[in-house]
Amino acid sequence: MLDDIWVDDSVFALRPDFAVLVMTAHGLRNGPTDDRSRAWLKAAGEEEIQTAKIDAWKEAYRAFGAKPQRTRPSVDALTRRMPLPEINQAVDAYNSVSVKHALPIGGEDLDHYAGPARLVRAAGDEPSEEALGQPEPGEVIWRDDEGVTCRRWNWRQVVRTRLTEDTTNAIFLLERLEPMSLEELEQAGDELAALLAELSPDVRIARRLLTPGK
């Protein structure tokens, strides 16, 4: 699964500093928000907002024609929602890591994917859920064989692959731009893996770092 995921060269050409740490979690036991995941959210909400990292994502959005004030990068939208929303334990885990590191993270149900995930520049005719609308030509999107899974890089995910309390196999996409270092990206991955292991001691986690040329 991990070996089949790819980022198109046109995305790296847009932002040569882009890297994504892809993590899969098999055997996950999710559930409703509890005191433990609520504490993760509270601690993350008390962190100082790292505006330089968020500003880098706003610039990336402008580079493919999106207006970040209207469709905000996921981490920008999340840091504006205080207290952080309670969704479910797995989502709470990755949202807390996202806010702590000012790092966009997407979490999706792997069993609802059709073929491998890939990050591409849209042609504009990709199938998409009605609520998200049709991607614009040149827009950066995550997609699979069925169509769009996330519009405008990390703005909004589709319902089809959403993480729910019934999810047992998940994929997480941790997306980095400078000034975040690759070392911090890996650290954020370690932290997310540790939280998922708290939820599910038997969870099996694999990871792969995608950078230009790899």
Score class of each variant (00 low, 15 high):
Pro73Val: 08
Gln50Gly: 04
Arg176Ile: 03
Ile5Trp: 05
Asn88Gln: 03
Pro104Met: 15
Lys100Arg: 12
Gly138Asn: 02
Ala194Gln: 14
Glu129Ile: 07
Gly189Trp: 01
Tyr94Ala: 09
Ala25Glu: 08
Pro201Cys: 00
Ala77His: 06
Thr211Gly: 07
Ile87Trp: 12
Gln50Arg: 02
Glu86Arg: 08
Thr167Trp: 08
Phe64Gln: 00
Asp144Glu: 01
Ile205Glu: 04
Leu28Ala: 11
Ser37Leu: 03
Arg36Phe: 10
Lys214Thr: 13
Glu130Arg: 10
Pro32Leu: 11
Glu198Lys: 10
Ala77Glu: 05
Leu132Gly: 07
Glu165His: 04
Ile105His: 01
Ala60Asp: 08
Cys150Gln: 06
Leu132Arg: 05
Pro116Asp: 09
Asp4Cys: 15
Asn30Gln: 12
Asp109Gly: 07
Thr161Ile: 05
Leu177Arg: 04
Arg176Phe: 00
Ala25Arg: 08
Arg121Met: 04
Thr51Ala: 11
Leu110Thr: 01
Asn88Ala: 05
Gln50Tyr: 01
Ser74Asp: 06
Asp55Lys: 00
Leu177Cys: 11
Ala19Asp: 10
Ala93Tyr: 03
Trp6Val: 08
Glu186Thr: 12
Pro83Ile: 01
Ala39Tyr: 14
Val120Glu: 08
Asp125Phe: 09
His26Pro: 09
Ile87Gly: 12
Leu119Gly: 02
Glu46Arg: 12
Asn154His: 14
Thr33Pro: 07
Arg81Tyr: 09
Ala197Gln: 11
Ala114Phe: 12
Leu199Thr: 03
Gln157Lys: 14
Leu110Gln: 02
Ile105Met: 03
Pro135Leu: 07
Arg121Tyr: 01
Leu21Trp: 01
Glu47Pro: 13
Ala19Thr: 03
Asp4Arg: 14
Ile5His: 02
Ile171Cys: 07
Val91Asn: 00
Ala131Cys: 15
Leu195Lys: 14
Pro85His: 03
Asp202Lys: 13
Gln187Asn: 15
Glu136Thr: 14
Thr33Leu: 04
Ser98Gly: 10
Arg176Lys: 01
Lys100Val: 14
Gly189Tyr: 00
Glu191Asp: 15
Phe12Tyr: 10
His26Trp: 09
Pro73Thr: 09
Gln157Ser: 11
Ala188Cys: 10
Leu192Cys: 03
Gln69Gly: 15
Pro137Glu: 01
Thr164Pro: 10
Ala63Glu: 03
Arg121Val: 04
Ser128Met: 13
Gln134Pro: 09
Asp76Pro: 11
Leu41Asp: 06
Leu2Gly: 01
Glu184Ala: 10
Ile205Phe: 02
Gly138Lys: 00
